[in-house]
Computed example of a mutant assay.
Amino acid sequence: MVLKDFFLAQLDREAASTRKAIERVPEGHNSFKPHERSMEFGYLAALVAGMLGWIALMIDRDELNLDLADSEGFRTRPLAKKSELLASLATAVANARRALESATDEHLATPWGFKMGGKTVSQNARSIMISDAVFSHLAHHRGQLTVYLRLLESKVPAIYGPSADERI
């Protein structure tokens, strides 16, 4: 199997699951935090909505260095409306699909780096970074988001199996 085809299929599955979670986000709770050390709900929801767009970043650029001014546009910012979150998700998925469709296995084997604070935080083959820093990382934060949804009395969607609110 061509690696991009594997990632495109995974993109479709993860985009559908992410959309189900984002559709449940109640407006007006952006500053909610279940604990003082937790991230704010608005930031978390925007992060989850935009994470699939990181695939294009990893294919199109050789690195993301958050110390540089040209990286400012890649920082997550809370969005006030569910419609903005859904639009962010749609844009992220479209950009990821475009990048994956033009990628080759050879390019996906080349290194990609994430830098911050004058240090390389992580660097690996693009394919590994997409798998770990996008898909696995998204599952983690989407799981966090479902906990916040429960605490805010929203219905938790079935994602990898049924939830208490939604049977498959």
Rank of each mutant, 00 (worst) to 15 (best):
M1Q: 12
M1T: 11
V2T: 03
K4V: 05
K4M: 04
F6S: 12
F7E: 03
D12P: 15
D12N: 09
D12R: 04
R13E: 10
R13P: 08
R13I: 09
E14V: 03
T18W: 05
K20S: 00
I22H: 07
I22K: 01
E23P: 13
V25A: 07
P26N: 00
P26S: 02
H29C: 07
H29T: 13
N30R: 01
N30V: 06
S31K: 02
S31T: 05
F32T: 12
P34A: 02
H35M: 03
S38I: 01
S38N: 08
G42W: 10
G42I: 07
G42Y: 03
G42C: 09
A45C: 03
A45N: 06
A49P: 07
G50L: 13
M51F: 13
I55D: 06
I55E: 09
L57E: 12
M58D: 09
R61N: 05
D62G: 14
L66P: 05
L68M: 03
A69Q: 07
S71A: 08
S71Q: 09
F74Y: 11
R77A: 05
R77P: 00
P78K: 15
P78M: 15
K81W: 02
K82F: 08
K82G: 14
E84G: 07
L86T: 15
A87R: 15
A87N: 15
S88F: 00
S88A: 07
N95P: 03
R97W: 11
R97Y: 13
R98L: 09
A99F: 02
L100G: 10
E101F: 14
T104Q: 02
D105R: 13
W112L: 05
G113E: 10
F114L: 14
K115F: 11
G118F: 01
N124I: 06
A125H: 11
R126H: 05
R126E: 10
S127N: 03
I128Q: 00
I130R: 11
A133L: 03
F135M: 09
S136Q: 06
A139S: 04
H140T: 09
H140S: 02
Q144L: 05
T146H: 06
V147H: 00
Y148K: 11
L149P: 02
R150T: 02
L151Y: 01
L152V: 02
S154W: 01
P157K: 08
A158R: 01
G161C: 12
G161R: 12
G161A: 15
A164T: 01
A164H: 04
I168F: 13
